[in-house]
Amino acid sequence: MNLITAPSTIELDKNFSVFLAGSIEVGVAKRWQDIVIQELSNEKVTLLNPRRDSWDQSWKQTIDDPVFNKQVNWELEALEKSDMIIMYFDKNTKSPITLLELGLFAKIGKLIVCCPDGFWRKGNVDIVCERYGVQQVMSLNELVREIKERIQ
């Protein structure tokens, strides 16, 4: 497995690449990305993980903040370049950026979504997925299984 985390340069190899989109809200969302990384550690896959340990809540979320700007552009580039996007909505979060990314990438055919019961906008997510033919799974384990199947 090859792991690329923000804000590292995105240089994809010949491996199947997967962007880990989903809930990141620090202190609220479970660290689901760590589970996916562990489960795929022995696979021939490149994972693009936007979660960074050096995140600083004091960064201004404006286009003029160079660190914030770099993070958002890194995520957009990684989403565009990846072969597959998995998206996990933690039911304890609001995940506004993940909802934005769902809207941006629902029509491109490389998205698989897990939105558990209890997520505050599950109905919206389900309708968007149904309308645009986005595959949905019921658990994080199923997301991992889908990646493993695609790698084969």
Rank of each mutant, 00 (worst) to 15 (best):
S8M: 12
L102A: 01
L48T: 06
G123T: 14
L99R: 07
R31G: 04
T5Q: 10
E80H: 15
N49W: 00
V113C: 05
N92M: 13
V28T: 15
N15P: 07
K70W: 01
I151N: 02
Q38W: 00
V134L: 09
I37V: 15
F19V: 05
S23W: 05
P96T: 03
C115L: 08
T93W: 07
I85M: 05
L20C: 06
Q61C: 10
I127W: 09
G118Q: 03
W55N: 09
V134M: 11
I147D: 00
N141Q: 15
C114L: 03
K44T: 10
K44W: 01
A6L: 04
S8T: 09
C114W: 00
W32V: 08
I127A: 12
S8H: 13
L47N: 06
K81D: 04
I63W: 14
V45F: 03
N42P: 02
F119G: 04
D34M: 03
I85A: 01
V144S: 04
Y88Q: 06
Y88R: 11
R121M: 06
V72C: 12
E80I: 08
P116A: 04
M87W: 09
S95D: 14
S8R: 12
K94G: 02
K91T: 05
C114S: 04
G109D: 04
K30T: 13
N92S: 15
L111F: 05
M138Q: 15
K70E: 15
